[in-house]
Amino acid sequence: MNRRAVSFVEIIIALGILIVCMIPVLTMFGTSGRAVLKSQNLGFSIGLAHRVSQHLLVMPFDAITEVPLPGSPIADGPDDGYFNPVANHGTQISGALRITKAQTPDLWSFLRKYEYRYSLIVNSVNFAAGDRMKCVGIIITWKEGGKDLLYKLYTYVPDI
């Protein structure tokens, strides 16, 4: 008996094979997405560490103190001179904006989402009289994909 039609079972089997073949393609989407996200966070973290390192250069030498791990939060963090207050479009201190949900919601939500923190490992060295230097390790930590990630940057701040 010649069968020329497609049976119901064949259709279902073909569908199943199609779905199985699509799975590697689908996982590829997820992989590329994670790559971009990681890049975004790492680039942002490098910028944060660099910002801290630049602020260290203008900060009084003795004011550079250690911020121990697990670190101080950037969002909803205290006024530290590195991140808070972050902006002030007014002419008085009352107009200063901090990274909070009320004042800078967009930036706050981004920092809060990944739980950004920073910590400073400070070692002070006296080479000679009047020749002091602080070796500051700037550590930016955040959470991503259930992991605790870290970026560290060491800088040397002379006392001049």
Partner: peptide
Amino acid sequence: RLISLHMSTGGVHSLDAVY
């Protein structure tokens, strides 16, 4: 001698500073 920069677009931010 220190200037901080804050850029943002569509929920993406950049915080940096230059001495």
